[in-house]
């Protein structure tokens, strides 16, 4: 499964970079979304993917009886998902403001500080 995910993640990264290299500012935002998802998935699958063994301790025990999925990358990715959302909403509102103020959706026209 990890090999399949590796290819999937590669495609996700490639699309993210391609979108971020566009001049249209909305496409940059789409690229940002793709990139954060690709990165999260990378961290998640890098730790090894386990089916049907969530990292939970059964009631009455002090540790899981069997091997469970690695909880640490899950915790990291959870943080990352939330932060990515924060960044995305900020970026979206920023783009909207920029569009309202300068009426330019071409990043090449926004390259100077006094656009």
């Amino acid at each position: 499964m990890e090999s399949l995910m590796a290819v999937t993640i590669g495609v996700l990264f490639a699309t993210a970079i391609y979108m971020m290299l566009r001049r249209s500012i909305v496409k940059l935002v789409i690229g940002l979304m793709l990139l954060s998802n690709a990165a999260n998935l990378l961290i998640f699958s890098m730790a090894g993917m386990v089916r049907g063994a969530p990292p939970l301790v059964p009631e009455g025990l002090s540790a899981p009886p069997d091997v469970v999925a690695d909880p640490l990358p899950q915790a990291l990715v959870l943080t990352a998902i939330v932060i990515a959302f924060g960044v995305l909403s900020f970026a979206v509102v920023l783009v909207r403001r920029a569009w309202e103020v300068v009426r330019a959706d071409d990043l090449d026209r926004m390259k100077d500080t006094d656009t």
Binding site: A14, L21, D105
Partner: peptide, 24 residues
């Protein structure tokens, strides 16, 4: 938000595709 616009030339798109593809 502004609509999507096609701003880059085909050559630029191929270049970006190459960069993105190799990074993926």
């Amino acid at each position: 938000l502004p609509r999507f616009a096609t701003l880059s030339t085909p050559l630029e798109r191929w270049r970006d595709l190459a960069v993105a593809g190799s990074f993926g």
